[in-house]
């Protein structure tokens, strides 16, 4: 049974956690793609920026969290979301909107977003330095050990505060997003603009407002994902480097322009990563006497230093096999 607990800890829980993070990033990418029709390369840096804002606020008011009994950075999250959303709107205003007005090809805006990536990375490192930091300043990460009620399982299931929060948060966000897109005037206008931007303009939909709302949603979700990931691990300036490929892979796997697909894609990528670096030898150990081969000490599909290759090969496979993604994306 201990092997099974090991599996739950290393695959189920960490897959759900990282999958939720990727899903939130991928939803942002897919929304931006469907409204503005370009691949927003600076999105992973928007996530880092959001985490940086949360860290900054935590450093300013470190005592708030312990007073409530939640991680301070999480209490500060709403403010960090607002700051990131405003930053996203101004980035659009300063760097993407003028190019859109000029009527350039989408790929030129993609390039501008790479320029924004570099600027954000430079800025964040100028202020933060290059070392990793803990998001916990006056409080400590809550770790829960759940003992199994079975005789054979002596090891507990381990889950941390940020992991519980992100999974609960994701469920709430999915419901909220669903209601927003299907019940509200602006949400429907976003879907309309994703369907047919010219007709949206002709119908009198204020496309500037829709663009702003898109950045607000994408920016806030990015702040949530970045902050929760930094809470779970640590805040590193090169966070974006490890996020960029997975979130793009998730968006494309789900079908670009398809928010629910992006959610699913996030979990596909998250679980693919955790399953491929998981040491299967542990699960097979109880049966080692029945196997026809000698069980090596580690039997993982991918050594963990090659983890970054997993989203990439899934991305290539989906581009070869089904470029519209699992859920038939609209924009291709």
């Amino acid at each position: 049974m201990n092997e099974f607990v090991f599996f739950i800890n290393n695959v189920v829980i960490s897959g759900l956690t990282i999958g939720s993070i990727y899903a939130l990033g991928a939803v942002g990418i897919t929304l931006i793609f469907s409204i503005l029709r370009f691949a927003h390369f600076a999105h992973a840096d928007l996530m880092t920026l959001g985490a940086f804002f949360a860290f900054f606020l935590t450093a300013m008011f470190p005592a708030v969290g312990p007073a409530i009994g939640l991680p301070t950075a999480f209490v500060m999250l709403p403010l960090a979301m607002v700051m990131t959303a405003i930053a996203a709107i101004y980035i659009d205003k300063g760097f993407y909107k003028p190019l859109r007005r000029h009527g350039v090809k989408p790929i030129v805006i993609v390039m501008a977003s790479l320029g924004v990536t570099l600027m954000l990375q430079g800025l964040i490192r100028m202020f933060m330095g290059t070392s990793a930091r803990s998001m916990y300043i006056d409080d400590r990460k809550g770790i829960h050990r759940l003992d199994m009620p079975f005789e054979l399982a002596s090891r507990p299931i381990v889950i941390t505060d940020p992991q519980i929060i992100i999974i609960v948060l994701l469920v709430i966000i999915v419901i909220a997003l669903h209601l927003f897109l299907n019940r509200t005037r602006l949400g429907k206008a976003m879907r309309a603009m994703s369907d047919n931007p010219d007709l949206a303009r002709v119908s009198g939909i204020n496309t500037d407002t829709v663009v702003k709302v898109t950045w607000v949603i994408a920016g806030s979700l990015a702040a949530i994902a970045g902050t929760m990931l930094s809470l779970d691990v640590s805040l590193k300036p090169d966070l974006s480097f490890h996020l960029l490929l997975p979130i793009f892979a998730a968006a494309i796997v789900g079908g670009v322009g398809h928010p629910y697909g992006a959610l699913a894609g996030g979990f596909v990528i998250g679980f693919a990563e955790t399953l491929s670096v998981f040491n299967w030898a542990v699960l097979l150990r109880p049966w080692r006497d029945y196997l026809w081969f000698d069980l090596p000490a580690t039997l993982a599909f991918v050594p963990s230093e090659y983890k970054i290759t997993v989203p990439f090969f899934i991305l290539l496979a989906i581009l070869v096999w089904r470029p519209t993604g699992l859920f038939k994306g609209k924009v291709l």
């Binding site: 309309a192 007709l199 939909i205």
Partner: peptide, 21 residues
């Protein structure tokens, strides 16, 4: 417009609502 004059993934009623945006 002549072509592409509806929002295909929106329902009929949502299409009409968009007209009233």
């Amino acid at each position: 417009p002549q072509e592409k004059n509806i929002f295909p993934s929106l329902t009929v009623e949502e299409n009409l609502e968009m007209g009233a945006f």
